[in-house]
Design a protein around this nucleic acid. Structure first.
Lengths: 122, 122
DNA sequence: CGGGATCCAGTAGGATACTG
DNA sequence: CAGTATCCTACTGGATCCCG
């Protein structure tokens, strides 16, 4: 990919922002990470994503499914089993997301310092 | 960067999510893009970011400044001139953001199709 | 020109109870 | 187990007016 590409604000940014808005909500990334290796069941995901409510997990999975990033697979047993797994599209998204994650992790301290400095000088 | 790195949901995701939440708000990316080449003045940015209100531009710039991603430079002329420019940290962020942007642009159509399909089967 | 101060609406997110 | 249904709160984003 050409890293020198200039992003055209007027044409592309709306779409990019909406994706970032989508993927930047409180839970989406954590759910995707919980699914990065294997397919998982509802409560399995819930256990892996600390602090999420059933409500928010349901909503998050549903919109991920709507975007085609996650596949839902129902097995009509009793009790019913529902498995979620990343689609190919979902896995492809996790690459750039991981890069952003790496950035966040390596600059987290610097940002915190900047914030503290800003807040105290204020 | 090692692309096989596994992200640890419990330890890293909160921080990553908060960054994504930060950078994924409605205007941040567009403002950063507007500043990618040169330092710009307030109304110059406002003109380049279609649809943003002064209020939201003010807030966005302020939190970018707080995070140390943008530098604010006041020139005490009359009328006053205020210039904003990306810091080194801000420029370093634009790399992973651009990758995400490229992803968004190249898969935008697929996602839209998935959404339409999901909504009609519903 | 570059904002600050208010006010207001819409939505994201959370708690809880209930269900097939 | 895997959700749905309500209700509520807080924050995001927008509009408007004012100021040095």
């Amino acid at each position: 990919m050409d890293m020198t590409t200039q992003i055209d604000a007027s044409n592309d940014c709306a779409g990019v922002s909406s994706l970032l808005n989508r993927v930047g909500d409180k839970w989406t990334v954590q759910v995707v990470v919980a699914l990065q290796d294997d397919a998982r069941r509802f409560n399995e995901i819930k256990r892996r994503v600390a602090g999420i409510s059933q409500q928010m997990l349901t909503r998050t999975l549903k919109s991920l499914e709507r975007d085609g990033l996650v596949e839902r697979c129902v097995r009509p047993t009793t009790p019913p089993q529902v498995e979620y797994r990343l689609t190919e599209l979902g896995r492809s998204l996790s690459k750039p997301v991981k890069e952003l994650a790496e950035w966040a992790i390596s600059h987290r301290a610097a940002i915190r310092d900047n914030q503290v400095r800003y807040d105290t000088n204020r």
